[in-house]
């Protein structure tokens, strides 16, 4: 059963941030408000990472998602002309996105949450959580994740080249 301690309070607060922020994103008409709600939601997710003892991921969440991606989104909104004050719904395919969202939710519910619901024994989980050092070792270990590590670099390079190609005209 849910005990009332620092962790459960934290979980409640961060869940409210995450879900409330998410609701704000889809309901607010003002795009900048939507972006700020997104930041609230991402902040809540960072808090949830902390509760899972994944401190490094929490810092990454704040640094990359709030510090970079959210700012890019706000920036993209400001780049557009008069998109900040929308008054009418112009998305005619909202029902399609609703179906996709509900389908995804059911998929996660049936596939991930229901199988472990009630069956999770906290004692069976190993107490030693992998640290950031372990992550660093695993990333460059020849037997573990060194290939994905390098592929990530190639992916980032491709992303940057793609962005430059799209954003700049042919000269």
């Amino acid at each position: 059963m849910l005990e009332l301690n620092a962790q459960s309070i934290g979980f409640l607060v961060f869940s409210v941030f995450t879900i409330g922020g998410g609701l704000g994103v889809v309901t607010s008409r003002n795009l900048i408000h939507g972006a700020l709600f997104l930041i609230l939601s991402l902040f809540g997710a960072a808090g949830l990472f902390v509760l899972l003892s994944a401190e490094f991921l929490a810092a990454v969440q704040v640094l990359v998602y709030i510090g970079a991606i959210a700012i890019l989104i706000i920036f993209a909104v400001m780049l557009t002309r008069s998109m900040t004050r929308l008054s009418e719904v112009f998305n005619r395919q909202w029902w399609l996105s609703a179906v996709v969202a509900v389908g995804l939710f059911v998929l996660i519910l049936v596939g991930v949450i229901l199988p472990v619901f009630g069956g999770m024994d906290t004692a069976s989980v190993a107490p030693d959580v992998a640290t950031t050092v372990d992550l660093g070792v695993a990333l460059v270990d020849g037997n573990q994740y060194v290939l994905p590590f390098e592929v990530a670099s190639i992916l980032l390079t491709a992303a940057m080249i793609g962005a430059i190609v799209i954003a700049r005209d042919n000269e």
């Binding site: 709030i66 959210a70 700012i71 706000i74």
Partner: peptide, 13 residues
Amino acid sequence: ALYFVAVGSIGTL
């Protein structure tokens, strides 16, 4: 060390 960079980037916001 990562914490202070992450927090500092909120100032941009």
